[in-house]
Design a protein around this nucleic acid. Structure first.
Length: 748
DNA sequence: CGGGTTAGGGTGTAGACAGCATGTC
DNA sequence: CTACACCCTAACCCG
């Protein structure tokens, strides 16, 4: 089908697509059009990665907008939201407006009501529904990207329930679901009353195979000689082989440490194939990476990048990740070793993909477990850059003949596992039963069960009694904790129940917080950090060897500060959880006491990305705790201490600096410098001697000017002011001249 | 004064051992 | 990451 034959799109779009080089639709795209995506028909598209799924969604949304409607595009990851927004913005010249919504707090985001296309994560959409965003009812088209993720135990139920809600609000809603190729896409299509478009077609060839001995064995039965010199390992040999052919490689491994170690080795193998120009650009990039964060991870990454390789995992700060991803896409970085983060994230195609580790440690299983077929297929799907590579190649590595056979059977020839709903579990229903009642989708037990009939679980289930019994258990739980009230068949959310639903808290988190805050007339920062750290909304930090003793000691030393009862050492499991929450709490306390970033990452053996994540979650939960304290009327002192604790993690400073950190461009370090110079509040900053401010800021005039302007100084200009800097300040200014004196946290 | 002894610090290496992916509001 | 062997040096003691 030709692009020119498309109808129902905004004027100019078809021509624009042709200018982008899209003359003819790919077969699955044409099939979707025939199924009626541009006419408002619901479609499930189950096609391989990088086969033009996005265009199917775009055609559906644009046609819907052209008919006067409004479209929503649901992404699985925050990082993908901005990527998609950027893509869709190319249609703004045809009068189609785009908006994104992700992130922290409860809101209805009314400004989105005049956008034609909205991009959001499933949790954000759920939150918007709970907060009663009026524009949700105006939606005419919803796209669910990567819908196979309904299979995910943690986040799948949210997507499932959210789609059910949107479809209940508007029975005529067009639903377009994009999926990787999975075994049971027909069941998904059934659930969504959609037509199934299934295809194995790819725009560029993907060869998959296994390396074993001195040969590559491919899926089509062919073999290619590939000998690895003794002393060399197959991964680096394959990577430098690709590079000598002008291609880049992606290596998937099973742990962060492995990713970092592999990047070091890959750098050594890749380094001698770099041109002088590339070396210079890489050196520049390496310094930029180093400046992102003050931590060993940041230094190690910079060192690897200087050699043309990089690692990628969730311990990296977001800026690290985007720098690496962009440079890899620009073909500057030649190889990345990554944990599975990269397979699910933003688009980073590569000539060759090597799945080095196909087993991963799983604490629940107590050992190594093979990766899911779907997961490995997603990794392999990253091979081949459309328009750049003649073909893509994805390889697994085998150490012996048995493994060769096993890898072929498990991954090369196997179909991915079917998608199964995970809705009928306690954590999922605890949250969604409350939200469903609180936002008015059901007002009785029968209504609730009827609503749940709209989910994938119901279409798949052979055991409907299970959903019912878990639902009943959760109704009891929610009633017992005062979130719901029941009168016969009727169910209603209480005031606090509504608040919990809108704050997007797990009811169990809310119960824990309410319990801890009640009867506390005073709360220390550590006590509050521990309170939020032990809710199910904050993931636990591992207790490493020696941590048990260390935190047990701290637990007894500071027993008086904890809110709620401390479990005894005889309740082994609860005590363990308590200690690991204490570890998180003391991390937060360190951060809020101005301990340096590199000390924290080292002390808790985490990466800068983990630190930022913890801080962000703590901020969100403390905000929620504050709202609950107000709602429950726990008194101004409690509310004030929560607020102070929240602001301290937000800026990473002691309480005495909170008066300064509100000023733009003043972070934890500069606030401390100003404070030491005798400037303690915004007012004092505004009225301070310029020379004092300049001295405190280590003599940097530009920063001093912007800070004074941000503090509201009538005449911030600094010229010819003497610097009152003593020698130690001058030395520090020297040491500091690389960064801008800010930790870099706080503006993410 | 010369030779020997000893404690202390630093360096290098082998082997044991723990730890092991991700993520939304 | 620890235990251990090993080397070097400085300080001290004794004949």
């Amino acid at each position: 089908m030709q692009t020119a034959e498309l109808s129902g799109l905004p004027a100019g779009v078809a021509d624009h697509l042709r200018e982008e080089g899209i003359e003819e639709l790919y077969p699955p795209q044409a099939e979707a059009v025939e199924a009626g995506v541009t006419e408002g028909e619901s479609v499930v598209a189950s096609v391989p990665t990088a086969s033009g799924k996005t265009l199917i969604a775009e055609l559906a949304m644009l046609a819907s907008v052209e008919r006067g409607g409004k479209a929503l595009y649901i992404v699985p990851l925050r990082a993908l939201a901005s990527e998609k927004k950027r893509e869709f913005e190319r249609f703004e010249e045809f009068g189609v407006s785009v908006g994104v919504s992700t992130g922290n707090y409860e809101s209805d985001e009314e400004w989105l009501s005049n956008r034609d296309i909205v991009v959001a994560t499933s949790e954000k959409v759920d939150s918007l529904v709970r907060n009663g965003a009026s524009w949700i009812e105006e939606l005419s088209c919803v796209v669910a990207d990567e819908i196979h993720l309904v299979d995910d135990a943690n986040r799948g139920p949210t997507l499932e329930v959210t789609l059910a809600k949107l479809r209940q609000l508007n029975p005529a809603l067009q639903t377009v679901a994009l999926s990787a190729t999975v075994g049971n896409a027909d069941e998904v299509a059934d659930w969504l009353d959609a037509e199934l478009v299934h295809s194995e077609w790819r725009p560029i060839d993907l060869r998959t195979g296994v390396h074993y001995g001195s040969a590559l064995h491919f899926d089509d039965g062919s073999q290619e000689e590939f000998a690895v010199e003794s002393g060399d390992n197959p991964t680096t040999a394959l990577v430098s082989d690709t590079l000598s052919d002008g291609g880049s490689s992606l290596v998937f491994v099973n742990s962060r440490r492995n990713a970092e170690a592999a990047a070091r080795r890959l750098g050594n193998a890749v380094e001698d194939q770099l041109t002088g120009e590339e070396r210079a650009e890489l050196a520049e990039l390496a310094e930029e990476v180093r400046g992102v964060s003050d931590s060993e991870t940041s230094d190690d990454l910079a060192d690897a990048i200087a050699n043309g390789a990089a690692f990628h995992h969730a311990g990296l700060a977001r800026e690290h990740r985007t720098l690496v991803e962009d440079a890899f896409r620009d073909r500057l970085i030649k190889a990345i070793s990554a944990t599975p983060t990269l397979a699910a994230g933003v688009n980073t195609p590569s000539r060759r993909v090597i799945v080095r580790d196909w087993q991963r440690y799983d604490g629940d299983a107590g050992g190594m477990k093979p990766l899911a077929t779907l997961e490995v297929h997603q990794m392999m799907g990253r091979a081949g850059r459309p328009g750049l590579d003649p073909y893509g190649e994805a390889l697994l590595l085998a150490n012996n003949h048995d493994e060769l056979d096993e890898l072929f059977e498990r991954y090369v020839w196997a179909d991915p596992e079917p998608v199964r709903s995970k809705l009928a579990t306690e954590p999922a229903l605890r949250t969604h039963v409350l939200a469903t009642v609180a936002s008015g989708f059901a007002s009785s037990r029968g209504g609730l069960l009827e609503f749940l009939e709209r989910t994938l679980y119901a279409t798949q289930s052979t055991d409907p009694g299970r959903l019912e019994s878990v639902t009943d258990r959760m109704l009891d739980y929610l009633e017992r904790n005062g979130f719901l009230e029941r009168a016969g068949e009727d169910i209603e959310a209480t005031g606090i129940g509504h608040t919990v639903s809108r704050l997007y808290l797990d009811p169990m988190s809310a119960a824990e917080m309410v319990d801890g805050l009640r009867g506390a007339d005073d709360a220390s920062a550590l006590g509050l950090y521990h309170l939020v750290a032990r809710t199910p909304d904050m993931w636990e930090l591992y207790l490493r060897s020696g941590d048990r003793e260390k935190y047990t000691e701290i637990a007894y030393e500071r027993e008086a500060e904890f809110l709620g009862d401390m479990p005894t050492e005889f309740e082994a499991e609860r005590f363990e959880d308590w200690l690991s929450a204490l570890k998180t709490a003391s991390l937060l306390e360190d951060w809020a006491s101005e301990v340096e970033e590199d000390r924290i990452t080292e002390r808790y053996s985490i990466g800068p990305g983990d630190l930022r994540g913890k801080v962000e979650t703590a901020q969100w939960l403390l905000n929620a705790a504050e709202r609950l304290a107000v709602e429950l009327d726990l008194g101004p002192d409690v509310v004030a201490s929560i607020s102070a604790a929240r602001q301290r993690v937000e800026h990473g400073v002691g309480e005495e600096l909170l008066g300064l950190t509100g000023v733009g461009n003043v972070g934890r370090k500069r606030a401390r410098w100003l404070y030491e110079a005798g400037i303690e509040t915004r007012d004092e900053l505004r009225n301070a001697e310029k020379s004092v401010v300049l001295g405190a800021l280590r003599g940097r005039e530009k920063t001093a000017e912007t800070i004074l302007r941000n503090a509201g100084h009538p005449n911030p200009a600094i010229e010819g002011e003497g610097v009152e800097a003593d020698e130690s300040a001058a030395v520090e200014a020297e040491a500091d001249s690389r960064g801008d004196g800010q930790a870099g946290l706080g503006d993410f």
